[in-house]
Amino acid sequence: MQGKSDLRGEETEVTVTRRVVAGIESRIGRELSAKMGGDISDLKIGRGMVRLRTERPSLLKLCRLLRDAMEFDHLSLLSAVDWDDRFEVVYHIFSYTNCCTMEVKVSVPKDDPRIDSVTPLWEGANWHEREAYDMMGIVFTNHPDPRRILLPQEYEYFPLRKDFKMDLE
């Protein structure tokens, strides 16, 4: 059994200050454009938020850079959206160090709904990705546990797709 004393010595804290540096968002944006170059597009800087778009092949490269070099340590939210011509996976990644949110949008074609899993980087993504598969049918490759999460395992449909109609009568 783990003893309590193992962690007692560790008294340091992650100190979080709101807006450590003024204009941290534009600094992050500049650094990203320098390192990722043509792999990212639609870079927008907002208050406390950086928004950008990337393609499937460069997603993992971008996420590694965000986690390891830029201190984005908390994957807040992963949403899947069903547009007319494509799926879209939206990641909201948060940094406890500089209180900045990164919004990354990735398009996934409808005839090949596959995308790399980010669970090896942030374990918090595990159930979010399972939910996205459950509801939208997007397959996350290299996911450690790719089963449905909310619906029964033998269920055949992906209910949050727009072609799944609710019977409103």
């Binding site: 193992d6 560790e10 992650v14 908390h74």
Partner: peptide
């Protein structure tokens, strides 16, 4: 001494709220 969740694990697993703050993250 029960249910210990270290600071690094808590952050990586996406845990939030009182559970995260009890793991010594001031957020």
């Amino acid at each position: 001494g029960l249910g210990i969740l270290s600071r690094e694990d808590a952050i990586n697993l996406g845990v939030t709220g009182p559970t995260l703050r009890a793991s010594n993250v001031k957020y």
